[in-house]
């Protein structure tokens, strides 16, 4: 039996469930669209497609997330072969991590993560 069946089935069911839930109201719920309802629930000036740009902090977080995510992944790999690699592995990964920590320190120093 193909080992992938459960994943596909659950994925399918999950997505189906989501769709059902999100589409449910469309069929069941009453529909009396009024301009008030159409509006966005918001006070102040309607800023539909406001051109105001978000601060770049989010972007920096995302970038650092990627780069440290890769670090996590490689550490997972190392965890897998930890015992058989013994000291050699440790030294190797230590170097890897230290270099990334250097990057991390740089980030701290430049204040990229200070949230205004």
């Amino acid at each position: 039996m193909n080992p992938y069946l459960p994943i596909i089935i659950i994925l399918g069911l999950g997505v189906a469930l989501g769709l059902i839930l999100s589409g449910f109201a469309h069929f069941l719920g009453p529909r009396h669209p009024t301009p008030a309802k159409e509006e966005i629930f918001e006070c102040g000036v309607p800023t539909v497609a406001s051109r105001e740009r978000m601060s770049v902090k989010f972007y920096l977080t995302a970038i650092l997330f990627i780069l440290f995510d890769i670090e996590t992944v490689f550490l997972f790999l190392w965890a897998k072969a930890f015992r058989s690699l013994a000291w050699f592995g440790i030294v190797e990964v230590a170097v890897f991590v230290l270099i990334l920590v250097a990057g991390y320190l740089y980030v701290l120093k430049t204040g990229a993560l200070e949230w205004d």
Partner: peptide
């Protein structure tokens, strides 16, 4: 708008 909720449901179940 409709796809949003789906993305938050199926990962939880997985």
């Amino acid at each position: 708008f409709h796809l949003g909720p789906v993305f938050s449901v199926f990962p939880a179940f997985l």
